[in-house]
Design a protein around this nucleic acid. Sequence first.
DNA 1: CATGTATTATGACGACTGGTCTACATATTT
DNA 2: AAATATGTAGACCAGTCGTCATAATACATG
Lengths: 200, 200
Amino acid sequence: MAQRQKTRQQRDNLVWAAAKLFRRQGYSGTGLRDILAASGAARGSLYHYFPGGKEQIGAAAVNAAGGLVTETFVELARQADGPADFLHRYSDLLVRWLEASKFRDGCPITTTLLETTPESAAISAAGRAVFADWRGVMADMLRRDGWPASRVPATATAIIAGLEGALLMARVQGSARPIHDTAQALCDLLETNQSRQTRA
Amino acid sequence: MAQRQKTRQQRDNLVWAAAKLFRRQGYSGTGLRDILAASGAARGSLYHYFPGGKEQIGAAAVNAAGGLVTETFVELARQADGPADFLHRYSDLLVRWLEASKFRDGCPITTTLLETTPESAAISAAGRAVFADWRGVMADMLRRDGWPASRVPATATAIIAGLEGALLMARVQGSARPIHDTAQALCDLLETNQSRQTRA
DNA sequence: CATGTATTATGACGACTGGTCTACATATTT
DNA sequence: AAATATGTAGACCAGTCGTCATAATACATG
């Protein structure tokens, strides 16, 4: 039993080391060598847990990192007082993370996905699942806020897309402004529903 | 003189071959070998035109591909009847390109930028310049549409961010829907100004 | 407790590609 | 014809990913 945990931990070490490196340097830019050094595991261990090699650990990294973001979304959606408040809280969080890493740590899955889609079916599938989860959290929140069902999916997608794009631009510019600007504009968008309800 | 053109063309061949490959496979995922094969140039020629090596050709590729998109933006902004019409036209264009390439050709600069920012100062700088151009086109269009100056910059940024994020999600999902959804939501956002003007 | 079987951990090896540089051949201009 | 600009070919070593035979450990059974 103690062993089970220990091995599980080594596997996790591998995945999280990979996730961190992929996020900073990209998928192709990160060698197995780097991952092994960062996780303290040996070369063969990686192929024990991931017979599929780099592609499989890439998919696992997308799953793990994406899942962590999903958890953050869920928790924040629970705490927040509506979608606009959620956006403010999350964009603040994002900015803090970015600045703490000197704009090195962006979205933990986009870089890997852009490099490997659609060449790697496994990684693409992992990415699709993560995006679906994220949209799901947003959609739930919008519905709870009283949005008409017909507009929920598109708006949820747009919010994720906006955040994703803002994060990318913020990294390139080395500035938090794209995130603040985009969050502000998205909040304006969210108001449209408010005003429609008021008018109706 | 004939040679001048020929050499200029060989240099261009290199840049465009690099741009195309970087867009599909990413920066690290593309070897100089691939670029040379695609452009028909020889190994040493690359270092004649780009003494800075891969990093320099990466920056040149971002410049070239980004510039082409800027031109498209400008032309479309001229033709379009306001920002909303622009969004519809551009998203249609995007979807056609995506489908024609079977969702392989996404944004020509994001992948390279995510992989290299901020490690490569040259590529990051090229990316910043391109994004600034894009925001500029959007901002001009919003101003012409009568937007209050105070809201123009943030909205322009949000539009670029939304398109960028939508393009990324569309690639991963292998579907045009994220683009249509995001464009729709952004059009809703653009209406907010309309309604404010009407109310005022 | 002892023994045998899975499971897990290891690092050297090979076939290959990575980006870079040097040496040489050709073309254009002065 | 000399000098400069441009194009070509290949050598170079560090690094890539994946495979393998082997060693160490954990677990289940008699």
